[in-house]
């Protein structure tokens, strides 16, 4: 059984609000960059960046981070890993890096992403922005910016669709058995 939890408009509103919060918290965009986690976080990071750029003039650096090599479930997962693109074409040392992901769940992906990120350099700050926080953390990790908090069961699935065509964007909760 699946239920739509965010529609296209909800998502746009959430992204707008998060963009404002990021600017506010960091007092502008100086020294700020966004890094999206493959693969759900990459499109979202791009959308957040253009939103930030439209509020604060000037380009903002956006990277993509694949955390496959940093996961801790190589032996336990059913599917085998598929490596995706990592593209961080700028230095992150001394910067404020906002990690971006679509859904925050156990926190393990974020742990892996922070390990990966620190192999690229030494950021001044790492912050976390997620579209949906669904709870069930297994690590002491929390989001600095969350689009929406959604209560879920552990076995549920949350799917976020983000595409160029805004009308198709949505987030769906699929109940687990």
């Amino acid at each position: 059984m699946s239920k739509e939890i965010l529609d296209s408009n909800d998502i746009n509103r959430a992204i707008r609000r998060m963009a404002h919060e990021i600017i506010e918290k960091n007092k502008g965009t100086e020294n700020l960059c966004l890094v999206g986690i493959q693969k759900g976080g990459v499109v979202l990071a791009g959308r957040l960046a253009s939103q930030i750029e439209s509020i604060e003039a000037g380009p903002i650096e956006v990277g993509a981070l694949d955390i496959t090599f940093y996961r801790d479930d190589l032996n336990t997962k059913e599917e085998q890993p598929v490596v995706k693109r990592t593209d961080v074409p700028f230095t992150i040392t001394g910067k404020t890096v906002v990690l971006v992901d679509d859904v925050l769940f156990t926190g393990r992906s974020i742990r892996a992403a922070m390990d990966a990120l620190t192999d690229f350099g030494r950021p001044a700050y790492i912050q976390l922005a997620v579209l949906i926080d669904r709870g069930h953390r297994e690590l002491p990790i929390r989001a600095d910016y969350a689009g929406k908090n959604i209560p879920t069961s552990f076995d549920d699935l949350v799917e976020v669709v983000l595409e160029e065509d805004n009308s198709k964007n949505r987030a769906v909760l699929i109940s687990g058995q």
Partner: peptide, 13 residues
Amino acid sequence: DVLKRDIKKVPPL
């Protein structure tokens, strides 16, 4: 790509 970085090491194994 990993081997092109300064830190040429990843933790999966």
